[in-house]
Each structure stands twice: as C-alpha cells, then as structure tokens.
Amino acid sequence: MTYVEVDVDAKIDAEVDVDLDPRRDYPLAAHRPDLLRTPTGRRIDEITMSALLAGEIGPEDIRITPATLRLQAQIAEKVGLPQLAQNFRRAAELTSLSDEDVLTIYNTLRPRAATREQLTDIADRLERDHGATLCAELVREAADVYERRGILAG
C-alpha cells in the first residue's frame, strides 16, 4: 500500500519539539497519548473496535508516523542508546516509502546485487523524493564499502 500524506503531519512534526522524560512519559501510549497520531491524523484512542466495524479504520491507521518515531528516538537517546535512536530516525524517513519500495531497496543492498551507479541512484532518490538523508547516507556508505571489498554487482 502507499502511504498517504495528510495535512495533519505538519502539525504533529511541530510537536516533536516536546522535551520528553523517559521516566515520566514512557510508554507513550499510556502516559502521552496526546502526542500520538496515526498517519491519517486519528488519535490512538480512536482506534477502537466500533470504529473498525464501522469501516472507519484502515491499515494506514495502525501505522506509526515519522513524528512518533522521532519522539521514540528522543527517548532512546536519553536512556543512552544513540544507535537505537539513529535507527528510529532512519525509520522515520522510511515511513513515506511503500512496502514494495522498502523491499526493493533492501534487496538492492544485498551483496553483489547492484552496481555503484544503482546504489548511488537509490541514495539520490531517497534524498530527493523522501527527504531521507540518513538512509541515503547509509546507502552511499554501503556503495563505498562494497566497492572497496569487491562486492558490487558485475
């Protein structure tokens, strides 16, 4: 399925400025539901059986938003896990990619699956079309290492 961009995202992104305290605010579902939205702008407590049975809830309503992932990155950072935080920030960038695109990029990153040009092209598209600078950086780094270690295609 393709992720649908909606206006509410801009508002949620603004709320990432919140300064979270892991001890007080985590788990967010229990302590800060006010900060959580679905990609369609729904509040987490609006994901109910009655809404589902009324046909109001679709698969996009049980997906995480980039804003929420950045909040969780803040928590990871504050409990001393910078790599985990970085993973969440890369994930935030990937929320706007379709499942199919995500799987394609993954398969392209496998050893001997792509030329340097193909990897560079993916990195450029990630950056240009999705603002995915961290993921683009990861793919470019892979291209460099794969070249040095001889695991590009061909």
Binding site: I62, R63, I64, L69, N87, F88, R90, A91, A92, E93, L94, T95, L97, V102, I105, Y106, L109, R110, P111, R112, C135, L138, V139, E141, A142, V145, Y146, R149, I151
Partner: peptide
C-alpha cells in the same frame, strides 16, 4: 566473517536498512 555474511546474502548495511524498515512500520 565477511565471506559467511555474504553467503547469507546480506551485509551489515543491508541488515541495518532492514532494521529501520521494521521500525518504520512500528
């Protein structure tokens, strides 16, 4: 080891991307 990692058809970078893919779906 690098050779066994490649035999498993992955690299640390492909696996890192996969990790972010999972997180991107919560």
């Amino acid at each position: 080891t690098e050779s066994v990692f490649c035999d498993g058809d992955d690299t640390p970078w492909s696996k890192t991307f996969l990790a972010s893919a999972y997180a991107s779906r919560g």
